[in-house]
Design a protein around this nucleic acid. Structure first.
Lengths: 147, 147
DNA sequence: CCTAGCGTGGGTAAAAGTGGGTAATCGTTG
DNA sequence: CAACGATTACCCACTTTTACCCACGCTAGG
């Protein structure tokens, strides 16, 4: 099981390539075969799963009911933009233009490791996201950890 | 379970390296594999967890729901600043620039052992913190220990 | 007084991050 | 069906950062 953590300021080149930070690479299982699945996140950002983590996610999606309209909607949105990408010799994945557009990414990105997946944000967008959080980190921590 | 205690005045060199005091090293389990996870504290300081202690914390974070917006926020902020660092031959960890900046640390640090984790402070900042605590140590003790 | 371990500083080789060029692939069009 | 342009994949090259050594002075304990 992955345990991605840390945030990294990286660049996107003109070909839409983004390096996967070495610190995160360390946690990618060899089962992933240097392959990642990129899709849209819940917020305006991208989620990147190593192939093995994606497969377990996919397994749970298969359990959803195709007769339930809400389930169908969820499956479509998640899968619609999902793209496989294999690392090149320089450990980069290349991200399709449509996904970059969706996340509002231009030249620079903030990469965040969140345990089983990796998130890619436009840095300004992430700043914005943090600001719009009503409660402070400290008070959320109290609620979530409940001690 | 660790039981760090005591405070130590140490220095940070130009490469951002900080020695882990020998007194504290004694309490680090071999399971930690000489690896520590550094992250931001609630106040303007850094928390350092031996890897085994961090893993128990991480385990509780994994229980959170990724579909809950508040939980996502908490996971991101907690993990965002988390960095793994392994001791070098001189028993030092190296702290990323962003974390040093967050804690306002320049050349000198105060290292405090607090049971399961280690805290790293700018010494002046810690003085400041003590002053801003409205209640005295004695009166807080009465509330906290409640006997 | 001597020694072993601790705290501190710095040099160097290896790895990481970034950018670009060229060949292969694919879909489209004349 | 061949020709063309656009896109992708695979190299190669450069710069910066990191990790790994080695070295020295100091201190605590024998």
């Amino acid at each position: 099981m992955s345990s991605f953590k840390g945030s990294y300021a990286y660049s996107v080149d003109s070909k839409g390539r983004v390096n996967i930070p070495a610190r995160l690479r360390k946690y990618v299982s060899s089962e992933a075969n240097d392959t990642f699945v990129i899709t849209r996140g819940f917020e305006q950002c991208l989620f990147v799963y190593p192939l093995d983590e994606w497969n377990t996610l996919e397994e749970s999606i298969r359990q959803l009911s195709p007769t339930n309209a809400q389930h169908r909607f969820f499956m479509r949105v998640l899968l619609e933009r999902a793209t496989e990408s294999q690392l090149d010799g320089q450990f980069r994945i290349s991200i399709p233009k449509e996904l970059l557009q969706f996340a509002g990414i231009e030249n620079e990105v903030l990469i965040i490791g969140v345990l089983e997946h990796i998130e890619i944000w436009n840095p300004q967008q992430y700043e914005q996201y943090l600001k719009t959080q009503a409660q402070s980190y400290e008070s959320v921590a109290q609620t979530v950890l409940q001690k």
